[in-house]
Amino acid sequence: MLQILLNSIVYASEIAVIAVGISLAYSVVRFANFAHIQYAVLGGYFTYAARGLGLGFPVATAISAVLTGLVAIIVERLVFHPLRGLRPEAKMIASWGVALAFRSGVAAVFGGAARVFDVETDTYLLGDAVITSLDLAVVATTIAAMVVLQLLLYRTRIGTGLRALADNRDLAATRGIPPDRLTALMWFLAGAFAALGGTLFALETRLQPDMDLQILLPVFAAVTIGGLSSIAGAVAGACILSLAQNIAIGVDFGAVLSSRSWFLPSQFRDTIAVAAMVLVLCFRPRQLRSGGVR
């Protein structure tokens, strides 16, 4: 049981860092950005490339975060800004186009085969549960990233501006907050967090151009469970989702009912993520019609 809990925390950490970026963007520009998943993949590859130049992990990840943040700003200027007058659905569709182009671009540059980060891990035993030094590093990084984001949003002028922008764009503009610059900053943050999350995900698994599909479902499920525009909600969503998934595939249901061991095959992990999202959406008491929490 402890193992299930540990697995849940590690997986939730990988998902949460990517998920908060989607929420952040949604709260300001009001559409679910599919290209965000590609920012995560791109970030993973940037880190890999920077590692290839002989840089250490912290430096490589920082460079990757900055680069991906800039990419997110460029995409905003070239695509989303000109489309700002359209309905959210239209922007969602356009964001898928961006994602598709990025995906092929990554595969064209780095090749279709998987790549793996070289990390030496130590294994620790907690009773009969196992955790690795890499797991601990991933969880610690995630917590640190969340604290930084929280401080940024609630303890700085920029954060106040961003939250004002998310609450009411017009009002924020009349108060003299430059919305375009703040939006650009928001995209930078979203891109940087995606890069960090993508790097953590790739560290625990591997890098490959089609890893976007492995990230897409759980991340969007987490964000949706949390209510799309709430950053704390995205983190909570990631935790709930991860716990649900790991319990479903980690508990020996056979032993509960009979003497024979039976597990739900782990390939149903994504099915559980999606089903959880659909169920939460269908049975959520709060009305979600007006496009998220305000």
Binding site: I93, G97, L100, A101, F102, S104, G105, A108, G112
Partner: peptide
């Protein structure tokens, strides 16, 4: 890979 990328570019 470039073949598939064209779809995304066309959409945008």
């Amino acid at each position: 890979n470039l073949r598939l990328g064209i779809f995304g570019v066309v959409l945008v």
